[in-house]
């Protein structure tokens, strides 16, 4: 079993559409611009989704790392829904 460390995972998803879920269950979908060891995250074209409902859109946001629950790559169909 070859292990895939968190930093390998991050290298693969930078610049790609991702979903960031916060501990408060709010989801942000957008292009992952950059992130650091604290899991501070910068997203471009970010959309705010609360309980599956679209709430807001921001050109650029910075998410403080302590709020992040997980990061996952976004499937392509979500972008086409817009």
């Amino acid at each position: 079993m070859t292990s895939k460390s968190p930093s390998d995972f991050l290298k693969n998803i930078i610049g790609k559409p991702v979903i960031v879920k916060l501990t408060s269950s709010i989801e942000y979908k957008g292009i992952l611009a950059c992130l650091d060891a604290y899991m501070n995250i910068s997203l471009e074209q970010a959309e705010e989704w609360i309980e599956g409902q679209f709430k807001n859109k921001y050109a650029d946001i910075f998410i403080r790392g302590n709020n992040v629950f997980y990061v996952t790559p976004q499937k392509k169909r979500n972008l086409q829904d817009l």
Partner: peptide, 22 residues
């Protein structure tokens, strides 16, 4: 088991010193 009544089940691919997990 995570904070705020959450549970996650998955296949562990990797982790680091902060216990961040893929």
């Amino acid at each position: 088991k995570a904070q705020k009544q959450r549970e996650v089940v998955g296949t562990l691919c990797g982790f680091d010193a902060d216990l961040n997990m893929v």
